[in-house]
Amino acid sequence: MELNQLRCFIAVAEELHFGHAAQRLDMLPSALGRYIKLLEEDLGTRLLSRSTRNVSLTPHGALFLEEAREIVERADHLQQRFRKLARQNAGRLRIGAIDSAVVSLVPHVLHVFRDSWPDVDIQIVEDKSSKLLPKLKSGRLDVIFMRPTEHMDDALENQFLFYEDVVLAISDKHRLSQRNEIYVDDLMNVPLIVPERRVRPHSYDLTMSLFDCASFKPQLVKIADEKQTIINMVAAELGAAIMPKWVARMSAMNVKFIPLAKEYQTIRTKLPLSAVWVKDSRDETRDNMMKVVMQELEVIAQQY
């Protein structure tokens, strides 16, 4: 006895017409008749009386109808219950990410991730690394994409992903805007817009590290902390800025983005990106997403 046989019997018992019942179940009347016949053979009794014009329930059929309805109802309820549980278990992935990760990494990963786990409820929080870490430690986030600190908490797992490339953002009216690459000596007497170090230490240190071996000190202009604001200040010819390569995708009229000369490529080590989560915490959904991250890492890194 199968659930499908019970559904067929219930439909015929309620319609008292094989054609109408078959239409209701979107199947051929002949196929419906075979299901009923198999059910009766399994039970060893007639459930329906058939004539050329009428279909009616036998006494056993009337008795069986109540039981069949209860079985099908319970089966449907059980299926719905466990599908709901599956959605809940799959159900949530809370991601924290700095602006760099939100630009390409997170969208790319989630696009691939959703192909295999479409029912996961995904929440994304964009913020600075210093703001994301407390949320991760307190359990409000499952994984974060951030700039790793020099001394990471031992309670955290840190998966290094890649370093980002670096460019100079400069007004297209500036004399340096026609260069194909930039050397540190080119930046003598060029005001450089930097954020406050306490707000964005990685961004501040990125600029300062360029001048570690220079014969002059950079001219710093601390007038903005957010990248879009810095780009707007560059467009207004208030200075240039050393920035991650991805900012070239931001809306920026009258701004050129020029790569640093190859001899300065070690500066990229100032822009690491890592995935971080609480060590020894079990989370199948997070682990599945990290598998996608590592699988797609080569493609993602090329975008940075």
Rank of each mutant, 00 (worst) to 15 (best):
I71Q: 06
I71Y: 00
I71W: 00
I71H: 00
I71E: 04
V72G: 00
V72A: 01
V72R: 00
R74V: 05
R74P: 02
R74S: 12
A75M: 06
A75D: 12
A75W: 03
L78H: 10
Q79P: 00
Q80T: 05
Q80G: 01
R81T: 15
R81V: 12
F82Y: 13
R83L: 15
R83H: 14
K84Y: 02
K84S: 10
L85H: 08
A86E: 14
R87S: 06
R87D: 10
N89Q: 11
G91H: 02
R92V: 13
R92H: 12
L93H: 03
R94S: 12
S100T: 12
V102C: 10
V103L: 05
V103D: 13
S104Q: 05
L105P: 01
L110F: 07
L110H: 05
L110P: 10
H111I: 04
V112F: 04
V112I: 14
V112D: 09
F113G: 08
D115Y: 08
D115E: 15
S116E: 13
W117A: 12
P118E: 03
P118C: 05
I122V: 15
Q123G: 09
Q123K: 13
Q123E: 14
Q123W: 07
Q123V: 13
I124V: 14
I124F: 04
I124Q: 06
V125K: 13
E126K: 14
E126L: 00
D127N: 14
D127I: 00
K128R: 15
K128Q: 13
S129C: 06
S130H: 12
K131S: 11
K131G: 01
K131R: 11
L132Q: 08
L133A: 06
K135R: 15
L136R: 08
K137S: 12
K137F: 00
K137E: 14
K137P: 02
S138W: 03
G139Q: 09
G139M: 10
R140Y: 09
D142T: 07
V143I: 15
V143N: 07
V143L: 15
V143E: 05
I144P: 03
M146V: 15
R147V: 05
P148E: 08
P148H: 13
E150P: 02
H151Q: 13
H151V: 14
D153H: 09
D153G: 07
D153W: 09
D154Y: 08
D154K: 14
A155E: 15
L156Y: 12
E157F: 02
N158M: 11
Q159E: 11
F160Q: 06
L161D: 00
F162L: 06
Y163V: 01
E164G: 13
D165F: 00
V166E: 06
V166M: 04
V167G: 02
V167T: 10
V167H: 11
A169Y: 01
I170C: 05
S171Y: 09
S171N: 15
S171Q: 10
D172F: 01
R175D: 13
S177K: 07
S177W: 06
R179M: 11
R179L: 11
R179I: 02
N180S: 10
E181C: 01
E181A: 12
I182G: 05
I182N: 04
I182H: 09
I182D: 06
V184H: 04
V184W: 09
